[in-house]
Amino acid sequence: MRVKGFIYGLRQSVTIGIGYAPVALTFGILSLKSGLNILETGLMSMLVFAGASQFITIQLIGQGATIWVIGITTLIVNLRHILMSFSMIRFFPGISLGKLSLLAQGITDETFVLNSKLLEEIPTPEERSNVALGVNIGAFVSWVFFSFLGAWFGNRLNINFSGFDFALLALFIVLTIGTVNRQNITTYIIAGLLAVIFKIIIPGKIYLLLSVALAAAIGAFLQQKQLKQNKCQGENS
């Protein structure tokens, strides 16, 4: 049973793996150009495993930024992971802290949205944690492997298929269809609008954190209001 859920998760993660491959290759190539060696590049991908912040960091290293600037920038860019793991807690009641801390390392935008969809259809917390582990490890292996590959002989690779640029967006679109419904479409629209506005007015990646937190808060507030209204109507009639 354990293995079955894990394998299922691994198989579902293939789409993420395909989407990560070209991005990780690019990271490997640029990382070497900015002065890191192959080992440092691979180590960063393994330990940090957060694409956007890794790209920003190698750019900052190239510009000669101090370690503190890099640390604070990374914190700002990756703070949204708090929202994601906070949102995932509901799937794992009773799961050991050891397993959860392993799962935590694999949380990214992509694994989070895929897991949120998959885990809703799985009945037990134990099975859910196995599936999530499969998804996270699959994505992790792709990211690390292709970072190494890019650093190792990226300059000699010449891939000319632009389709990779759309892989992750296609994944998000499939998940949108399974996730958006009457109850949450308002939140979806608010988040989309806010993301566009924040992306234009605030440089960097922080628009993700701001739009998600604000839209989910507004959506939650509206849902609670609706619930109370329904209750009142129920009591009056």
Binding site: S87, I89, I173, T176, L193, A216, A220, Q224
Partner: peptide, 26 residues
């Protein structure tokens, strides 16, 4: 429970919108 529960359940759908919409029109 309550408003916090609604909030964490809405994070995935909000993130999907924030990841997709700007990429398509900007």
């Amino acid at each position: 429970s309550g408003v916090l529960k609604s909030f964490i359940e809405l994070v995935p759908v909000a993130l999907l919108a924030a990841l997709v919409i700007p990429e398509l029109i900007l």
